[in-house]
């Protein structure tokens, strides 16, 4: 199974520890999707940071990733917040670097 497919599946478990294990120890996760709703981008270095950030998110609300397509290293998906009744955030994820089955660098941009 490709790491991007796993990403979508593990994300939907809302389990930060499992999600963290998709990433390399010295990974970089850059998420510019929040800029579409006027928020600052997120930059996380290191899998411990992945855990801390997503542990906060997953405890705060249910979050669902609906994968629309995976084409090579690019995944298009929507991030939905079913309990909040707000429209989903449309994302385009780019797997920049992968090593030994772990994500080394992953960038997310708003999708129009």
């Amino acid at each position: 199974m490709s790491i991007l497919k796993k990403y979508g599946e593990v994300f939907n478990k809302n389990d930060a520890k499992a999600f963290m294990e998709l990433f390399a120890d010295d990974c970089v996760f850059y998420d510019a999707a929040p800029t579409a709703v006027g928020m600052d981008p997120i930059y996380i270095r290191g899998k411990a940071g992945i855990y801390m950030m997503f542990n906060m998110y997953f405890h705060a609300m249910k979050i669902e990733a609906t994968v629309k397509s995976i084409d090579g290293n690019v995944m298009e998906y929507d991030i939905g917040y079913p309990d909040l009744g707000m429209p989903p955030v449309l994302c385009r994820g780019e797997l920049i670097e992968e090593e030994d089955g772990k994500i080394v660098r992953y960038h997310v941009y708003p999708r129009t």
Partner: peptide, 10 residues
């Protein structure tokens, strides 16, 4: 700011 969390976890 980008790297401080990574550094302090180490």
């Amino acid at each position: 700011r980008r790297n401080s969390a990574f550094y302090v976890t180490k």
